[in-house]
Design a protein around this nucleic acid. Sequence first.
DNA 1: CCCGCAACTGTACGACGTACACCCGGTGCG
DNA 2: CGCACCGGGTGTACGTCGTACAGTTGCGGG
Lengths: 215, 215
Amino acid sequence: MAKRSVRLSRDTLIGCAMDLADAEGLEAVTIRRLAQENGVTPMAMYWHFNDKDSLLDAMAEHLITSVDLPEPTEEPWDVQLRAILGAILAALRPHPPAAGLAMRRVLNAEPGLKLAERVLELLSRAGLDPHRSANAATFLLCSVISLVAAEFTNRPEPEDQEHLVRQKKALLEALSPERYPRVIAAAPDLVNCFGQDDYFELNLDLLVQGVRALR
Amino acid sequence: MAKRSVRLSRDTLIGCAMDLADAEGLEAVTIRRLAQENGVTPMAMYWHFNDKDSLLDAMAEHLITSVDLPEPTEEPWDVQLRAILGAILAALRPHPPAAGLAMRRVLNAEPGLKLAERVLELLSRAGLDPHRSANAATFLLCSVISLVAAEFTNRPEPEDQEHLVRQKKALLEALSPERYPRVIAAAPDLVNCFGQDDYFELNLDLLVQGVRALR
DNA sequence: CCCGCAACTGTACGACGTACACCCGGTGCG
DNA sequence: CGCACCGGGTGTACGTCGTACAGTTGCGGG
């Protein structure tokens, strides 16, 4: 579509790939498609990225870099932890299809390392020994990511998204009411909660409070 | 490899697909490969499954069906919730590469609905209103799944798994120690914690305690 | 015996990642 | 001023994937 402005740069390609993912899902991010979108041969991509996986790496790094990590303060550890998790969430939410890319790759680049260091420090301040801190930190990061990424791995085309949601909700509500009363009552929330503000708020609280309860 | 015994059945195919995923990762589960593994033409698969996605659906359903959901007891809600999450974990752990399939598909079949109903009921007993119950239930299921699935989305060949782990750990330990002291100290745990018993135990506790703290 | 249908085959198409060979045009150096 | 270099891009080709469409088997019941 978009013709080549003058020269391709790695960063514009990454941005283009993110837009593609946001608009049509991660499966639309393709070497060929990315090339076509920039009016260029597929093989041209290999000048900027070693292979497709390193394109995905770059997207993940872009995502992690966009986390606006709050500076350390004198507030208690749980407030700060909550703020960090919130910052990660805020960075990922605009890009649900790409969010999952960040999972395996947090520790690949400097911003992710800084992030991990901060989380580990806060967990240690919360009273967790190093081993448990590491485990909990890993899990916290994974959880926040999956908060955003869930249900968007392999999303359908954006327009029948709403249609499918409606359909699934109807399907749930057609269940035998004596067997699954709560599922039926909760159908709208179960189907629709992804992407809602209070879904994120509630579960970030859950995580932070869970850490506190570990002692 | 394995020749056709006499006739193919949907269930044996699903089992074969799970074995394939366990042995070589989810990306090895291919219509063509599954056919070849059973000494048959790729197109033969389309008699048993509408398309690849419905094969994945079937694998997810198989996984969820294998959860040995404990019967309701008179124990307090948190004990029971913990038991249920543990049961899900136990069912998923033998199949890390396929675990992620269960995310979007829990509510597709009867066993998953039963599971959701039980969780919702326990959360309500914990004092959460229906809306928060639905949100928390969704998140709890996603989290348990991502406990297992994390780091195994797109795993490499099984033999250099260990090699990569070693490499990554070395890479982490080579960082500037004044900047990332905790990351470096935790390097073995950060890289290696996936699949460890205490990683799962700790984080299930975190989740259940987190729910309790929501009031 | 043979007919029907469940189960499987054969061939083909378009999309994907990517190896390998080639080439163009601007920049720096003699 | 000319030319060689090389960063960035082209063209072609291969093997793999999912799967559409049409044909073929063989077994069980009339």
